[in-house]
């Protein structure tokens, strides 16, 4: 059920300027909450080392896998309905992306590209390029195609719509990834939590780049090569982050240490840094472009 202010009185000034839902704050809230959950679970498992029954672990993993989606539903979809002119296809974009990921991306990556067979042992440059052209391109192309055909033409009203739908697509893709982790194996909650954050952060960061491209394509007259470039950048970001994250966190071997385990929490830090490093400049770019567009509209007769 939606609630709207009556039109019998003049709308507040901010509403007149921005009748659409916010995009950056929900992203920040989502990421912030997931990060806090990750840190909390990590600290509990590191210092208290609880032993949970298998059923509890499985249920916990499932809940964690769906947490980003749930948070997005709350901060993204639900709050969107409070806007004056809400975005109506967020959920659809998320679901279609999730389905496309499961039906196209994963089989392509696992059975055709078979990344497990050749990338882990390859040199660093080959790993970057390999992940960029396999996982990166597949991931971003699917998101781009879903957005392009589902909402880009008639539902992009402002640049912020690109961000919102981009994030929806990212959340959908990441959720399928997270469900895969949760449903295979009996990983501990701290491991699952870390992986979930990593997937979410990387997907959102890459989606922001795609969103910039789709927004420019919709509202400006950019070079026709801009969108492929942004797609390539998003893919390259994936290609860099995956080896960087695993390389920084990979365990070493010491005969004096009884347990040689990777420091996955450092990967979380890497993912967070990458997301912030992408989000802030892109937010600035979006704001600049928006302001330029408003000024141009104001000058128009």
């Amino acid at each position: 059920m939606s609630y709207y202010r009556p039109r019998t009185s003049a709308p507040p000034d901010d509403e007149a300027i921005n009748p659409y839902g916010q995009v950056w704050l929900p992203i920040a809230a989502q990421i912030g909450i997931v990060l806090m959950i990750v840190i909390a679970i990590y600290l509990v498992f590191r210092f208290l080392t609880p032993t949970l029954p298998r059923t509890a672990i499985q249920v916990g993993d499932l809940i964690l896998a769906l947490t980003p989606f749930g948070l997005w539903l709350w901060f993204g979809v639900r709050r969107e309905r409070l806007a004056v002119q809400p975005r109506t296809r967020l959920l659809m974009v998320a679901i279609v992306t999730a389905l496309a990921a499961n039906a196209i991306a994963f089989p392509l990556i696992e059975r055709i590209y078979q990344v497990d067979r050749w990338l882990p042992l390859a040199p660093t440059l080959n790993r970057v390029l390999g992940y960029a052209f396999t996982i990166g391109v597949t991931q971003e192309l699917i998101k781009y195609v879903v957005i392009r055909y589902a909402v880009w033409r008639e539902h992009f009203r402002t640049r912020a719509d690109a961000i919102a739908y981009g994030v929806a697509s990212a959340v959908g893709y990441a959720t399928v990834l997270n469900l895969q982790i949760a449903l295979t194996g009996d990983a501990n909650l701290d491991i699952v939590a870390i992986r979930i954050f990593d997937n979410l952060a990387l997907n959102i960061a890459a989606s922001i780049l795609i969103a910039f491209g789709t927004a420019e394509m919709r509202f400006e007259r950019p070079s026709p090569f801009l969108m492929p470039l942004m797609l390539a950048l998003g893919a390259f970001l994936t290609g860099v982050v995956i080896p960087l994250r695993t390389g920084l966190t990979n365990s070493t071997f010491s005969a004096q240490t009884a347990i040689n385990a990777p420091s996955l929490i450092f990967g979380t830090a890497v993912s967070l840094i990458v997301l912030v490093a992408i989000a802030f400049p892109m937010a600035l770019l979006f704001a600049t472009a928006d302001r330029r567009q408003r000024e141009a509209a104001a000058r128009a007769p």
């Binding site: 695993t246 071997f253 009884a258």
Partner: peptide, 12 residues
Amino acid sequence: IDVTIYMQRDAT
């Protein structure tokens, strides 16, 4: 010497 080694997958 008895050690436990954890290996991580490159990409999830």
